[in-house]
Design a binder for these strands. Structure first.
Length: 298
DNA sequence: AATTCGCCCTGTCGGC
DNA sequence: TGCCGACAGGGCGAAT
């Protein structure tokens, strides 16, 4: 699922092709994905407006136009792809699997393609989402930070100064499992199921540990590793195991580098113990019972 | 007030 | 081979 590293990878890839591009036409074929605006408002307002900023906040991708803003949340299976004007349609575009080469051409507009922004230079930005958990916000003006969905997000993990953060959020370390806290977007913006498991593994902390029982040193270690696993995800351009794609259709390279997520039943890459899969906070959760004991050993 | 649960949705996979 | 249930899960609103 697209988390901070995936959305940041998409943002970086879209910045060059979209910046300065002007919308000529809007096609929204699944209107229920659009929140807080009428499809006609967006379709009428956007044409003629030029992209002025491509921004990420948590898992949200934000396009600032001259007068309005379009915000995407990719949900579980959302894809944002860009087809330049000279792209030739490739029917195999979506059949690529992890590890395969970048698909050539552009993806066809299929039944899962819900929004196409046509640009005057012939380029196309397409939003595709098989499971339709994604969301599109159309906001008049640039005050997207005030939107209720964006406004309640916690801080950006990569901008964090950890000590002040831990002091400010001390009361958030309550009786809930630490994994549940990491997934809470109002605590910290952008961590999802993959990187929560990765950060907990890197920290040697059991996902079911109650947040308030973490010692100061463990809290510090965990936040440090949250940042490092996110940076690693960005470095390798995101984790593809099913739907996530970069805007050119190619896969991210981080999946094979994961230490925990997707490794249930397989040997721990650190100690060889069989990794356990369980459910925490209603999410599939993988951890190493030896490297991440529920109670400290001494 | 804090926390958990149920729901939305559809492609894929394992079992029979 | 084909059918079917289970599963994947982000985030919101309802229930506890």
């Amino acid at each position: 699922m697209p988390e901070l590293p995936e959305v940041e990878t998409i943002r970086r890839a879209l910045e060059k092709p979209l910046q300065g591009g002007t919308v000529s036409k809007v096609e929204l074929t699944l209107p229920r994905l659009l929140l807080d605006a009428k499809p006609l408002d967006m379709a009428r307002s956007l044409p003629g407006q030029t992209v002025r900023g491509v921004i990420r906040r948590g898992k949200y991708l934000i396009l600032e136009f001259d007068r309005d803003t379009v915000v995407f949340h990719l949900g579980m299976t959302g894809q944002l792809t860009f087809a330049p004007s000279d792209a030739i349609e490739n029917p195999e575009f979506h059949r690529t699997v992890t590890g395969m080469q970048k698909p050539k051409g552009a993806h066809p507009v299929d039944k899962h393609t819900h929004l196409v922004l046509f640009l005057t230079n012939g380029g196309k930005l397409m939003f595709r989402d098989p499971r339709t958990f994604g969301k599109i916000l159309f906001i008049s003006g640039h005050k997207w930070a005030d939107h209720p969905r964006v406004g309640k997000l916690g801080p950006e993990p990569l901008d964090l100064r950890i000590q002040p953060f831990l002091k400010e959020k001390k009361s958030d370390f309550s009786s809930r499992p630490i994994k549940s806290l990491l997934l809470d977007q109002s605590f910290l913006a952008g961590v999802g199921n993959i990187y929560a498991d990765e950060a907990l593994f890197a920290s040697g902390i059991h996902p079911r540990r109650l947040a308030k029982t973490l010692k100061p040193e463990e809290r510090n270690r965990l936040m440090t590793h949250v940042k490092s696993v996110l940076k690693k995800g960005i470095k390798y351009q995101g984790t593809t195991f099913s739907d996530y794609r970069k805007p050119d259709g190619s896969s991210g390279d981080n999946y094979e580098r994961l230490m925990a997520y997707g490794r249930g039943g397989r040997p721990c890459r650190r100690c060889g113990t069989v990794m356990k899969k369980t459910v925490v906070a209603q999410r599939g959760t993988v951890f190493c019972p030896k490297c991440q004991p529920l109670r400290s050993r001494q």
